[in-house]
């Protein structure tokens, strides 16, 4: 079950396991803007949204424990908290984070597998447009639910 890319069990080409420049710079490398290209910014955005979405995942799992308590606990949570306008704003933020992380993840995967490499900017534009449209539709749906 353990990841074979861990330092003890690497199976890829020997040179591929060498620490990268980013890793040698540590987390400080994330905020180093020198010489950073579009892909570098996307990398940071992917990390930040990934951490946010992971935090939400565990928060979500924790909240779901209210279901085990019973109908009263869950339904009052819905009525008193989740339909609150503040939560609806957070829903929009969550959807934006999911879209950024998911669409950028598709882009990184495609490029990583050697596909669409020469069309990265077009890909970014296409995914940016799709993300904006889905976010707009999602926001309108959240607003309609809140109303």
């Amino acid at each position: 079950m353990t990841d074979r890319t861990a330092p003890t069990g690497r199976t890829a080409l020997p040179d591929a396991t060498a620490p990268s420049r980013a890793r040698r710079r540590g987390v400080a490398g994330w905020v180093d803007v020198r010489g950073r290209r579009l892909g570098g910014w996307a990398f940071i955005l992917n990390r930040v949204t990934g951490l946010g979405v992971l935090f939400y995942l565990y928060l979500h799992l924790l909240v779901l424990s209210q279901l085990a308590i019973g109908p009263g606990a869950w339904d009052s949570l819905l009525k008193n908290w989740f339909l609150n306008p503040v939560f609806l704003v957070l829903d929009v933020v969550l959807l934006a984070g999911l879209l950024i992380h998911g669409l950028n993840g598709i882009r990184v995967s495609l490029v990583g597998f050697g596909l669409v490499v020469s069309r990265q900017k077009a890909l970014l534009g296409a995914f940016g447009t799709i993300g904006a449209i889905v976010l707009l539709i999602g926001t309108l749906m959240f607003i309609s639910h809140g109303g």
Partner: peptide, 28 residues
């Protein structure tokens, strides 16, 4: 590719990166 952004996959070299891409697609 020439326009590769290496840092996007360096921290999960080899099989780990592929796992992340596959599970990412499934998650989506």
């Amino acid at each position: 590719p020439e326009r590769w952004a290496p840092e996007e996959r360096d921290t999960l070299p080899g099989v780990g990166w592929a796992w992340q891409a596959i599970t990412g697609a499934l998650v989506l």
